[in-house]
Structures are given as C-alpha cells and as structure tokens.
Design a protein around this nucleic acid. Sequence first.
DNA 1: AACTCGGGGCA
DNA 2: TGCCCAGAGTT
Length: 346
Amino acid sequence: MPTDQFQQKILAWFDLNGRKDLPWQQAISPYRVWLSEVMLQQTQVSTVIPYFNEFIDQFPDVNALASAPLDSVLHLWAGLGYYARARNLHKTATLISANGGVFPDQLDALIALPGIGRSTAGAILSIAFNKSYPILDANVRRVLARHYAIVGWSGHTKISNQLWEISTLNTPVKRSADYTQAMMDLGATLCTRSKPQCNQCPISASCLAKIENKVHFLPTAKPTKAIPVKNIFFLILQNPQQQFLLEKRPASGIWGGLWSLLEFDSIENIHLWGLDNNMPVQAIKTLKPQRHTFSHYHLDYTAVLAKTKMSVNNVMEANGLVWYKVGQIKSLGLPAPIKKILQEQY
DNA sequence: AACTCGGGGCA
DNA sequence: TGCCCAGAGTT
C-alpha cells in the first residue's frame, strides 16, 4: 500500500477512534509532552496517569521542576521504577531552565539532553511542535513489524534501522502530531501483543502479518536468557520509641537514591552488624521468603523483624541511617517490595 | 514464570 | 557498536 494511503487510513481511524482525553493531551506543551513521554518510556498509561497529574500539580512548569530538590522529585517518582529516569528528568529541567525555560525544537539539541533519545525527541517534535519526525516506541514498533512482517528482534541494529526507516517514510508532513498519536493509540488499543483486534484495524487489509498468519509471532521476541537468583535478608529493626531503621541507598544502582530497609546476606550478619555498631539486635520473627524480579535477576528476600534497645549511635548519620515512625515512612516513597513488606506488617 | 518497556553507559 | 543495566505491572 502506498504511504499516503497508509497515512490516510491511520488518520481517519484516529479521528473516529483515537484517544484524545489523556491528561497530557490537554493544554499540550513541550513540558507536558516531555514529562509524559519520559514517564511512558517503561511504564503503562494507566500507571502513569496519577503520577503525571501529581507532577503537574507540584511542578506546573519546567522552572518549578528545576528548582525542586532532587529528593522531592525522587519521592514523587517512587513506585514508577527506573529511578535514573527521575534523575535525568531533573537534570534536563535544570538545563532547560538555565536556558530561559525554552525547550529546544531541534532533534540534535533534544537528544543531547539526559533521558531523551531519538524516539522521545521524535515524540516531542511531532506532538508538541507538530514537526514531521518519526518515533519508534513499542507500540509503533509492533504495528510496523506486523504490517510489514519484519522478522527479527528489534534490539538488533539491523532490524532497528529497518523499522526506523519505515517509520520515517510513513510519517506524514502534515498532521504529524495526530499521526504519531494515532500510531501509539493503534498499538495500545488494537494491535496489542496478545489478542490483537485485527477485525477493527484500519490497515488489516494490507497487513502482511495478518495475510501470512504471523500476527502472533510478530514482533519477534527478545531472546530469552536465564537470570540469576540473589538471596538477601531485609532487617525491620524497631527501637523503644517504636521507630524503624531505614537507610538511604546510593545514588546509582538498584533503587538509587531511595529509602530502603537494611540489607544483609545472612541472619548471622545482622547480629554481627548489631554488635559491631553498639546496637545489639534481638530477632523476633522471620517472615516468609518472597521473590521480586528485576530484568536481570530474581531477588529472593526474607524480612526479619527485630528490636533493639539502642536508639542512637555514632555510625548512623555517616551511613545514611535514620529512624522513622510508621506514619513518616508511608510518606517517604519506597521501592515497591519495601512498601509491600511494611504495609503487610503495620 | 515469562514478558513488556527507551535510554545511558561502558568495553 | 554491541552488550549490560534498570522495576513494576500484566498476562
């Protein structure tokens, strides 16, 4: 099918069936498009919506975000995952704010900003500036891989280049904002990974995957790899004032910059740590082991409930350790499994 | 239990 | 340039 017919069908479908009521589709601005696109990079729409609204509420524009402390940005982000995104978001806000609060409208300048790659830059240019730039997010990738029956994992450079080329050729000069939104909507609502609704799809007649009966095999899945298991113990330590001990994690790595429970590789080491730090630990109860899966390993964790008679010692501050009351902890924003552990106990 | 999702960073 | 890293939700 010629490109212009492809575009026509996509846009006609969008006019009737596209989503137009998402929060970031109202009062469209580069700031709102950028914020939503970064949140949507690895997270689904339904999860993002409350976070987006809260961010807009607290940081109505890029200058407000730039002047906020990184900690408060991380706090608002807690639960969304991939916390480096929040750090990059804040960094980019300060760069744009220093530039008078004006977003770049050039591809290279956008890509130079932390947390903005080719696809996010394309989304900002097409949706916020109505310029004709392609995107290649997961939705668009799925629609194109199926329609043109592109076989091979998109993580391979060759396949990725092929898909980018198709996306570029298919992006119209006019109405590129609507087209971009339409392709994302099509992938999100009809051309889904499982149970795609081809009968309602505006381009199913020319879809090679449909014609060749390959819809369920495309796009080609990422090669699976066995991932290791890491075993740890989380210490839920309570002092006589009914406070709990949390530590601030290092800025990089898992749960970077977030508050968490102290982590040990054995129960014995919990006791050794207590003795070493003049804070003898008395274990009360060992909870049932649970599994939390990251992309590259399983974290099998066991929470240990314990108490201590000591509330202060000289190593705490240097190690980022702070006693918190349960009520305070709930307002901190914690990694999902830590939040779960504490919610189930208190 | 497997799958999904862009970008940064490093060898 | 090709790999590794990073979390929570859905299926």
